[in-house]
């Protein structure tokens, strides 16, 4: 048991050191860009995982929180001249408010109804961003957004800031899901009625999951705008929500490592598939279907099964969600 823990810590240190060296070893800005996007998507996928994977609430509206965070941070720094860190806090607060706004009215909904409701919520947020001209400049988007900091010139600088943020958030999420609160969330996922009977306040914990998830997605939105320095509603379509969900599920929901693997895996996979040109999305579509049929618990589920085969132990099923 102790050995196991030691190995885990060693692996973690190796990963952290490798990550810190990555922008030095890989000089090409393009791969550094993908790594920065990987960090942002890690935040998005991990936060959606809290809602979907741990609480069992299906959501296809995550890009809305991402968009709200992005616009809040952009507007606060651009119009009110707030410093970037304050913009980030503002983005998290505003996205959290939207988390409550989505979480509360949809408390009664389950399964497919919840998926469609969250989808509609995402579309409405995007349409409001598109049409509220005086605030968002509509389809033109906002340009000239403040960079992260005056010294953040290269993508390596961004990576060195964003990667630790992603690590901290993931560690905090890990603490959360293993706490009393996390156990309550998992109880809701496994059986709502039983959870309620045990005295878990369903409404409170469901809204809490949505809110915490939204706050992190808002942070991701803020990191995104101060990196790209441009934002328009085109960046937050339903397809973006779907992409984040794919990362969670293909990586393995209800696990801490799954969404991270999903985020980096899909960012790099889609980019390397550029070589396939116009066949890219057709092959992506087939891959999604095949992967989901063959690995219903995602990558982490498959890893667990294979390792159980190798260790000659019984198959431990990964939580399958709803």
């Amino acid at each position: 048991m102790k050995n196991n823990r030691l190995i885990k810590i060693l692996v973690l240190i190796v990963i952290l050191v490798a990550a810190a060296l990555y922008p030095i070893v890989v000089q090409r800005g393009y791969y550094q860009h993908l790594a920065v996007m990987g960090c942002i998507y890690t935040l998005l996928a991990s936060s959606l995982n809290l809602i979907v994977g741990y609480t069992g609430q299906l959501s296809l509206g995550h890009a809305a929180f991402y968009g709200v965070g992005a616009y809040t941070s952009a507007l606060l720094t651009l119009r009110l001249g707030w410093p970037v860190w304050a913009g980030m806090l503002g983005a998290m607060v505003m996205a959290g408010v939207f988390g409550v706004l989505l979480g509360t009215p949809t408390l009664r909904l389950k399964g497919s109804y919840l998926v469609i409701a969250t989808l509609g919520f995402g579309e409405i947020v995007r349409l409001v961003l598109l049409n509220w001209m005086s605030l968002t400049r509509g389809p033109m988007g906002l340009t000239g957004i403040t960079r992260l900091a005056p010294w953040a010139v290269t993508k390596a600088h961004y990576f060195w800031v964003y990667f630790p943020i992603a690590v901290i958030v993931v560690v905090l999420l890990n603490q959360l899901v293993n706490s009393r609160t996390g156990r309550a969330l998992k109880a809701i996922r496994e059986d709502q009625v039983a959870a309620e009977v045990m005295g878990i306040n369903l409404a409170f914990y469901k809204v809490l999951a949505f809110t915490v998830g939204a706050v992190i997605a808002g942070l991701a939105g803020s990191l995104y705008v101060h990196y790209v320095t441009f934002v328009s509603p085109d960046s937050f379509p339903v397809a973006e929500s779907i992409q984040i969900l794919v990362m969670v599920i293909v990586g393995g929901m209800g696990t801490i490592a799954g969404p991270i693997i999903g985020a980096f895996g899909i960012v790099f996979l889609l980019e390397t598939m550029r070589a396939l040109a116009e066949y890219r999305m057709v092959i992506y579509g087939i891959t999604l279907f095949v992967v989901i049929v063959l690995m219903p618990d995602g990558f982490m589920g498959a890893v667990r099964r294979v390792s159980s085969i190798l260790l000659q132990r019984g198959v431990r099923h990964a939580p399958a969600g709803d």
């Binding site: 599920i249 095949v290 989901i292």
Partner: peptide, 11 residues
């Protein structure tokens, strides 16, 4: 599970 159906048919 619902999730898998979503991803499968989205594929």
């Amino acid at each position: 599970p619902n999730m898998n159906v979503i991803i499968g048919t989205l594929g």
